[in-house]
Amino acid sequence: MKFIYTHNEQTHTLDVEHAGDAFEIEINGERSHVQVISFTPPRLTFSHNGKIFSARVASDGKKSWVHLDGTTFVLERADARTQRGHSHGAREGTGSGIVVAPMPGQVRGVLVNAGDAVTEGQPLVILEAMKMELKVSAPHDGVVAKILVTQGQSVEREQILGQVESNQ
């Protein structure tokens, strides 16, 4: 069975086969043997190539969180990542002009209406989270095609707030 995770923008593929509590894992082309010793969520104790590790592992469905040897790794699952792919691409400026929330929070203000002409960098929406205010600005010059949020509304990170269409 294949598992694909992304960590710090790098993708890792694992091929896992198992019989009972013994696992054969191929990761980035290398094979290793894993034996599960105990699993009392969130604590997993296992031996990996003869060495024993204890990790704490939990998942929110989109990401797996692993605390191992003093470090926490956030591993995004492949299926969750494809869903997010659209808005991500838009934010990097593929020209679609889709504007997304860079953080979760509440909409403190909507500064423009659909049909308004805007210039690059002009604030469109004010978000607030944890008492911090953040302006979300137009990615380029153009016309506001749509605004999908209203004042007081809660938004998730990466949620689409609106769209700015280029003039040409």
């Binding site: 890792h12 290793s32 599960v36 990790a55 040897d69 470090t71």
Partner: peptide, 12 residues
């Protein structure tokens, strides 16, 4: 560490 963490995530 990252490799071991990936393994732990997949196993769980």
């Amino acid at each position: 560490r990252l490799e071991t963490a990936l393994i732990a995530a997949a196993v769980v």
